[in-house]
């Protein structure tokens, strides 16, 4: 059971990620990313992180991806154009990625006593999580709220109608 669930949703993850790379239209890529996020939420559940699974759906899939979709719609982003491209990106980047993957994979595969996951390992309750969050890590929590405030301010000021005109007028 566990295995089937894992394979299905891991497969969905990978498929969505690949689709993200291969689609020409950004909206298709955005929708593929939603698929990835949702599959990941299920995987979190399989790992016993119920709060995170919910947060993943609500925040990532429900807010961030919606924001992406709004922007794509706003900017009327169409199919990707042919541009000059960068030779360095291909010549240097792919081998680099391959190397990164190879190193990490090697380390993971060579590692011993990693253990395994099973469904009966228990779920981390939200109460447990919030206890740690609001007792020990209260300060970071508050700081993140400030961070979000700053992000809001930044986003509003950047995206304002007058901002672009200011640049053109100088």
């Amino acid at each position: 059971m566990h295995l089937i669930l894992f394979i299905v949703f891991a497969g969905l993850c990978l498929a969505g990620a690949l689709n993200l790379l291969l689609q020409k239209h950004p909206i298709n890529s955005a929708l593929s990313l939603v698929v990835v996020m949702t599959s990941l939420a299920v995987l979190y559940l399989l790992l016993g992180a119920e709060f995170l699974a919910a947060a993943q759906i609500i925040v990532y899939a429900g807010a961030i991806m919606v924001l992406f979709t709004f922007v794509i719609m706003l900017l009327n982003a169409g199919r990707e154009e042919r541009t000059l491209g960068s030779k360095a990106a291909v010549a240097l980047g792919f081998p680099a990625v391959a190397a990164i993957l190879a190193v990490i994979a090697t380390v993971i595969l060579k590692a011993q006593d990693l253990g395994s996951v099973s469904l009966s390992d228990g779920i981390t309750s939200t109460e447990e999580l919030s206890r740690v969050l609001f007792h020990e890590l209260l300060l970071p929590f508050e700081v993140t709220s400030v961070l979000i405030l700053i992000a809001i301010l930044g986003a509003v000021s950047l995206a304002r109608k007058g901002h672009g005109d200011q640049e053109a007028g100088k």
């Binding site: 990106a89 291909v90 010549a91 081998p95």
Partner: peptide
């Protein structure tokens, strides 16, 4: 941007 990204990836690798 992409060449910058490539160099970043190369450095990380």
């Amino acid at each position: 941007l992409r060449s910058y990204a490539a160099w970043l990836a190369a450095g990380a690798a």
